[in-house]
Amino acid sequence: MDINNVLLITWKEILNARRNRWFILYTIVFALLSLALSWLGLAGVGNYNLAGFGKTTASLINLILLIVPLMGLTLGAISLAGEREKGTLLYLLAQPVSPFEVLLGKFLGIGAALLAALLIGFGLSGYLIALRGGMTQIGSYLSLIGFTLLLALATLGIGLLISSFMKKAESAVGMALFLWLFFVFFGDLGLIGSTLFFKLDIQQVLYISLINPLQAFKLGALMSMRANLEVLGPVGLYAMRTFGAQLAILISAVLGVWIFSSFVVTYAVIQKKGGL
């Protein structure tokens, strides 16, 4: 692997993202909504340094669960399919670079741009909270940022995987939206239904819920905020009792496995299909 080729494609992806209207739109929406939620979180108590980061972190979790997977999935989905549609993927794969370098460069480039977009939102909110509400519970806010970045990369990986199969960007985005709906809404309902129908025990429910990267993120984010998971009921308590402080590592590992496995499968598809 030639690292210069990887960095070159990463750089090209970052340049592309700067002018990509979806990217710009997502960055603005995320920044505005996180600022608005932070502002609301500070209302009434911010002036007395009582709110800090804890309350805002809680309200940001739902925003992140909705928007970040949407960003990761759709930006990933547009990526390879869009280039395939324009013929530039075929072109890129015919240059003196390997398919691995192309894919890694694209993942790192879009990933870096996505993380930068999220950090703009988190940075603005963090600045507002620090200014108005003090530095209380900043640790939970930083943990939230960490888990969010992992979630973003995991969903980006899944988006790229969808993209590797599709010939048109539109179809890839459609598939990404379907998957987003599935993760966000039907994931919970499916888990509840399966639990009742198959009479799953608490351990099985925990492991099945961890398969959904959004659920894994939610567990991690709530744990970092409250240090215990009674808010998630028996499953949360079971998770805390079984894994304790190791749960954060387990959740990070789950999201890491999503990132790694989706990248490996995407690479296999690209190798088989090429740029066509």
Binding site: K12, L15, K86, T88, Y91
Partner: peptide, 11 residues
């Protein structure tokens, strides 16, 4: 040079 030049329109 393919029939449809492979260009990155945002660059």
């Amino acid at each position: 040079l393919p029939e449809h030049p492979p260009l990155y329109p945002d660059l």
